[in-house]
Design a protein around this nucleic acid. Structure first.
Lengths: 134, 134
DNA sequence: ATCATTGCAAACACTTTGCATACGC
DNA sequence: GCGTATGCAAAGTGTTTGCAATGAT
């Protein structure tokens, strides 16, 4: 996939087969997976893949801001392909995490109590529309 | 401390010496400590204290909503004595976490895209007023 | 041939669990 | 004395590191 190869090269990350596949997976599966979920999914197609490579790659990609590390509600890291600012909603019933297109940049580059705000993260919890219907 | 003893009893948690001390520590040190920080601080005064007790107590207290478990920006759990709704600000320079009295209940008990919002968490990052002055 | 990436295994940090002892009512 | 809390040690997760083998240019 040229798209991913170019993106990696542009960020001075050698576009190895594994890295391209991990990046492609995150682009095509917007499910906020953990490192282990990425590993489990890709292992099927790349039997030789190691968890170490997944961890190393995810760290490299997030350091280059190609993907984002999420620290949502549990004590675990989840990853997502970097996109426009948005907020996260987690369903308390089914556990699914949704991206919401709310920008909510109320605080961005603003000052609160004298503190300069650079980043903001809004995490919501509740019951998702699918679970409400049941 | 009668205050803590009563609070524990009211929640059907036996008000043992260790539990009272852990709760008192969180009330008097609003520094969002990790379990280990609580342990290190209290071990000085209670040499026999074990980490297990700290972990077990923190879990019990947060299950009763006496304290809150925070999943802020790093992949670790921090705890705080439960108070009015507020948001958190972490300084990128000094690492300190501030409580901000912004309520921001824009989404609370509201529906977004059909999802019912029950909880919300707003986490900000930036440079705190102390670090800005330097 | 060189250099970086990979992947195994071991180490690591944080948290939980099992269980015997000790404590409080 | 009974029942629960404590605290040690061991096990369990999620993540990182050391290093030899592999792979790409």
């Amino acid at each position: 996939m040229k798209k991913y190869k170019d993106l990696l090269s542009k960020n001075n990350i050698a576009p190895s087969f594994q890295r391209i596949k991990i990046l492609e997976f995150l682009d095509k599966n917007r499910t906020h997976p953990t490192a282990d979920m990425v590993y489990q999914a890709l292992k099927k197609k790349i039997p030789t893949l190691s968890k170490t490579t997944v961890y190393n790659t995810l760290k490299k990609l997030s350091q280059s801001n190609i993907i984002a590390e999420l620290h949502l509600f549990e004590n675990e890291i989840r990853y997502e392909y970097n996109t426009d600012p948005h907020i996260h909603f987690k369903c308390l019933k089914c556990g699914k995490i949704y991206d919401l297109d709310e920008t909510y940049d109320h605080y961005e580059n603003n000052f609160i109590d004298g503190h300069k705000v650079i980043e903001h993260h809004v995490n919501l919890k509740g019951i998702c529309r699918n679970c409400l219907e049941k």
